[in-house]
Structures are given as structure tokens and as C-alpha cells.
Simulated scan of single mutants.
Amino acid sequence: MTSKDDASLSRKEQILDAAAALFAEKGYYKTTTAEVARSVGVTQPYVFHFFTSKESLYLAVLERAHLRILDAFTTVNAPPEQLAERMGKAFVELLLSHRDEILLVMMSYTTPEPAVRARTRQEFDIIYERVKLRFEQAGLPDAADKASVFIGHGLLIAMSETLDLPHLCRWRDKPSTKF
């Protein structure tokens, strides 16, 4: 890869970071690609060089967050009795390090655009299947139910963070979050 390719890839990541922050702050409809470009210090056509539309930019932000979640859940190593807790900690670490992206993916189904809703359904199904598989491979009984509860807890954390109502889910108050 050339230094020009590296710079281009870096700019693309900067655009994704800026878009995640703006989408999280203002929502899908109130965020413009011009604002994203301005926050990165590039022109709007440069944003369109990487993403053909605001929707494709939003989907790319969601995809990157989805991959982070899958990677976190896949790479956790723990004995079966600690697997859910360690995967939960991995999710919390993601929420702390990539808050905007993770909250966007957790709440993206509220965006009524058909492509966004379809992608969100697909990504959550993949996450559910990955979590269920990890629980099955660990030999945990009722892996499907445990996966549903695990994801439900993650959604509750995201909801409490999004609404700024920490009392809905007191995960920050507990030194060891149980999932």
C-alpha cells in the first residue's frame, strides 16, 4: 500500500468517526454530509468519493460498529461459567471506547429508512447467532435463551445511555457487570 493509499484510508476512517459522532448527536435526518465534510476538513465531494450517499455513509458507520461487536464477542476467552460476563465486559469496553458507534448500532432500528432497518435486522441476527454459537460451544445449557437475555441486557444498557437515564441500568455502578 502506498502512502497515498494510507492517507486515503486514514481520511476515510476520519470521515466515519466524524459521521458517527454527528449521527449520534443529531440523528440521521439532521446530519448532513456537508457537516461531516466540514468536521473532517474536507469537501463534500471528497466524502462522496468514499460514500455514494448519506445512507451509504450511515450504513458504513453501522457496519464498522457491527464488526467491532462481532470481533469483541468472538475473541473473548473465558471458561464457560465466565463467558457471558467476559463478553459483557467486552461490550462495555466497546461502549466506553466507541460510544457513538455502539449506541448507533444498538438503536439503528429506530431509523425508518428501509435499507437501514433491513441491515439492522440482519446485523442483530448475526450478533445473536454468534453469541448463541459461543454459548453452545462452551457447552452452556439453553444457549438460545442465554443469547437472547445477553442481547437484551446490551439493549437495556444502550437505552439507558441513549436516554441519559443511568438508573434504568446501573451497569456503571457495579464493579462486575453480570450478563
Score class of each variant (00 low, 15 high):
I127D: 12
E55A: 11
Q14C: 11
A143L: 03
E63M: 12
K146V: 05
L163W: 06
L95E: 05
M159G: 14
E25D: 13
Q44R: 12
S3K: 15
L155C: 10
T162V: 13
V116H: 04
F51C: 05
V76K: 01
P175T: 09
E55H: 04
P114G: 01
V131M: 02
R119E: 11
K132M: 04
A115D: 08
F23H: 01
H66E: 11
T2H: 13
M159W: 11
P141R: 03
Q82Y: 08
W171N: 07
R86N: 09
A90I: 08
S148E: 14
C169E: 08
V47M: 02
S176V: 14
A65K: 02
Y28A: 00
S53E: 04
E63W: 06
V42W: 03
D173T: 09
T120Q: 08
K4T: 15
K30Y: 13
K26S: 11
E81W: 07
E93Q: 15
I157S: 06
M106S: 13
H49A: 09
L168Q: 08
I15E: 03
L156D: 04
Y46S: 12
E123P: 12
R170T: 05
D125Q: 11
M1F: 14
I127G: 09
T33R: 03
L155Q: 09
A90F: 05
A84L: 07
T31K: 03
